[in-house]
Amino acid sequence: MTEREFLADSVEPVQPAGSGQPPKPLKSLGRRILGWLATFIGVILFFTFCLYLLFVVIPQGPEIALARGIGKDTSLTITKIAVDSVKVKKEIALLEKKIDKLTTQGPYLIVNTTDNRFYLYSGKELIREGRCSTGKNTRLIAKKRNYEFKTPRGVHTVQSKQKNPVWAKPDWAFIEEGLPIPPPGHESRFDAYTLGDYKLAIGDGYMVHGTLYKRRMGLPVTHGCIRLLDEDLEVVYNTMPIGSKVIIY
């Protein structure tokens, strides 16, 4: 091999400028950042759209379908038969009478424990309404047992009525004050002032009575009984005979 031949083999041929493909131009840093930003925004937009579809459009799907008339045919295809409309009207009137009769004719008391308000009715007529106090919804945790102070919801009946009532304090009244519990019948158990001038017992130890703590009227502060102001209590006592209903909700 001559020197010329050796050199021709070992040295790569240099492509002359202008022949073949031109070299790719390098992307500038700014354009690259813009590209990434566009991709990022695109991805964010795509996922936002997906979330919108998932949480807004899809849950509304059934409503969209109904609005567009899909599944609109709900009819039971009832072929009507001839009916005597006079007879039907009579039947409806009878039902209306039945509904009317449902309202108690005598007096009854409605107590709203959320708003601490009472409504005294006689039949459909509202006789008196005003503030009251109901159960404070607390649980007293004592050594031997727990006590729940809550006004029981539902329909109750006035079981007994009493003027100038004396309160026979239950155990929790002593526990709450940190006092030792006296034996049953002990004189410290009897209190002639706390219940006010009247009491109406509605069962299970619950009562409608007066109060010494008039400033707290309208607040849920009692141990389950319903406290009324003196004037309201007097009207309730005089209006409601034994056996009338006290409805608490």
Partner: peptide, 17 residues
């Protein structure tokens, strides 16, 4: 997948009825 879910949701009232 989302379209499939949407179509199924739209079909729901029909089967309910």
């Amino acid at each position: 997948a989302l379209s499939w879910l949407l179509i199924s949701a739209m079909k729901a009232p029909h089967s309910f009825i």
